Amino acid sequence: MDVTQTQTPAAAASGGAATATSGSGAPALSSDFETFLRMLTVQMQNQDPLNPVESSDFAVQLAQFSSVEQQVRTNDILSSLGDRLGALGMGQLLGWVGMTARAEMPVVFDGAPVPVNLSTEPGATEARLVVRDQNGATVQTLQVPLEGGEFDWAGVGDNGAPLPNGTYTLATESYSGESLLASTPVIQSAEILEARNTSGGTRLVLDNGQEIKADEVISLRNSV
């Protein structure tokens, strides 16, 4: 007796899907709707005549295929949009290279006085500049003008001896009597040498050895 081997609907669909996607990837899934129709045809031809697939099942498969197809197209559009926005951002930042940026940042000391800008709180009766090293230890505290403004930090400790070269964090502490009103990082100006697009966002490389985020820039001006 001849025995005709039948293929279940799931197996037929699985085989058709493998043919449709192998070697072509997501783009084929989003564009080859005719492949899906051929898959349905093969599935119908190989179904068990004693247990045929319900028409509602075909409708479900069609809806699932359409949903996946739409999701793939959406992902492609979002990816393309992200690439375009990234390129646009970098194109705009190219104009920043060579300009002087002002931002709150640590100070790189190399033995020469470092110009900074101090910000103090209104109503303060005393202002102190507090200097901390890379370990967070306070290495200098000195009184500064209440009005704040431009200030040249000489890079010396409380004992008057020059501090070692390195990176220091400077902040202006405003006091009313013995009460601390605010602690504000100093502002520095530096020329932008390079703009880098990183996973954490766009970063700017400055001529003072610092690297900051683009959104940390307070102001820009043409370098003299």
Rank of each mutant, 00 (worst) to 15 (best):
V97P: 03
V97S: 12
G98H: 14
G98D: 08
G98R: 15
T100H: 06
T100G: 05
A101E: 11
R102F: 14
R102Y: 14
P106Q: 11
V108A: 13
D110H: 10
G111Y: 15
P113L: 07
P113A: 13
P113F: 11
V114D: 06
V114M: 05
V114P: 03
V114W: 00
P115K: 11
V116I: 14
N117M: 14
N117L: 10
L118Y: 07
L118R: 04
S119W: 00
E121K: 11
A124S: 15
A124N: 13
E126L: 13
A127C: 10
R128P: 02
V130K: 01
R132D: 00
R132Y: 04
R132V: 00
D133S: 00
D133I: 00
Q134L: 11
G136N: 03
A137T: 13
T138M: 12
V139R: 01
T141V: 11
L142K: 02
P145D: 10
P145M: 10
L146A: 05
E147N: 10
E147F: 05
E147Y: 02
E150G: 13
E150C: 03
D152F: 07
W153G: 01
G155C: 04
G155Q: 05
V156R: 03
D158T: 06
D158P: 05
D158E: 01
N159M: 01
N159T: 02
G160S: 06
G160Q: 00
P164V: 02
P164C: 00
N165D: 05
N165G: 09
G166A: 06
T167Q: 06
T167H: 05
T169S: 08
T172I: 04
T172M: 05
T172L: 00
S174E: 04
Y175C: 09
Y175P: 09
S176T: 13
S176V: 06
S176Y: 12
E178C: 06
S179Q: 15
S179T: 14
L181Q: 03
L181G: 02
A182I: 05
S183A: 11
S183T: 11
I187Y: 04
I187T: 08
Q188S: 08
Q188R: 14
S189P: 05
S189A: 11
A190C: 05
E191S: 05
E191F: 04
E191A: 11
E191N: 06
I192W: 12
L193K: 15
L193H: 09
E194Q: 14
A195L: 10
R196V: 14
N197H: 02
T198S: 12
T198P: 12
G201R: 10
T202M: 11
T202P: 02
T202E: 09
L204Q: 09
L204R: 11
V205D: 04
V205S: 00
L206H: 06
L206Q: 09
L206T: 08
L206W: 07
L206A: 10
L206E: 08
G209R: 05
Q210L: 12
E211T: 13
I212F: 09
I212H: 03
K213G: 14
A214E: 15
A214W: 10
D215C: 04
D215N: 13
D215I: 11
